[in-house]
Amino acid sequence: MNIVELDRISKAYDTKIAVHELSLAIEAGQMFGLLGPNGAGKTSTIRMMIGMTLPDSGTVTLFGQPFTRKSLHRVGYLPEERGLYKKMKVLDQLVLLGQLHGLKATQAEDRARRWCERLEIAGSLDKKTEELSKGMQQKIQFIAAILHDPELLIMDEPFSGLDPVNTVMLQDVLVELKNKGKAVLFSTHRMDQVEKLCDSICLVHQGDAVLTGTVREIKSRYPKNRLRVRYEGDAAFLSHPSIAEASQSNGTAEIRLRDGADPQQVLAAAMAKARVTYFDVMEPTLEEIFIETVGGKANA
């Protein structure tokens, strides 16, 4: 059973189409990446997924049933726009949010303490939110989203603004939850994170899902046309007709082949003139696929 199923959902605002006939499915135990440049329609898609706005057309199915508010108790949500009650103490805040998700007060407090310890912010439990740094507030919100042990986690840009240590800390938690069978969706425009964490992705560009599927399958759709060669001796093979582009330094060459070219020919040419110590036919990175698909707008 798919935990989330979006079937051709569309949403238009006054001046622009935010999401256009987007479909995707997320299974239990899956880490799903929703990618796209800023303004691509990621947040609009997420908002429709949790019923904050309704799609103009198309259907949202959560846990095998058409969307109802009842399902929201099984969903954990970290919005892109962070916000907490400024004057409220961290623990009170977490307990309240846990209660609103259906937990008992004692249960919520217990879990809040445990998570805060795990994420190394237990010392802030009795502080007011406004006394905390941005990164700490983000961790609090992260905890608020997972406190009620939801089956589906939806995280809008969960790592933005965090330092590398904290990013890894949260990533570990997400991986752990995924391994426990939760479905995890997160949106980002950082390709390296997706490459590292996600099983499946949906690449959104200007409201359209331009690429959907498992990372493995998507990558296999693109030709393996990148080579990395380490060699000793003559570099003349780099002008082989199969090579579209090459750069080299310290005896290592990064090569992009022409479409349809055979890496074996390049290897043969290199071995004819030089001594090859390393030869790798590389998969395209998601970033390259992304740039190729949306036309260089990844950082727009």
Binding site: I50, M52, R69, L72, H73, V75, Y77, P79, E81, R82, G83, L84, Y85, K86, L97, L100, H101, Q141, A144
Partner: peptide, 13 residues
């Protein structure tokens, strides 16, 4: 202004 409504609206009407 505190933007907390987004978390709140994900659970309450």
């Amino acid at each position: 202004t505190s933007r907390i409504f987004e978390i709140m609206l994900a659970t309450v009407t």
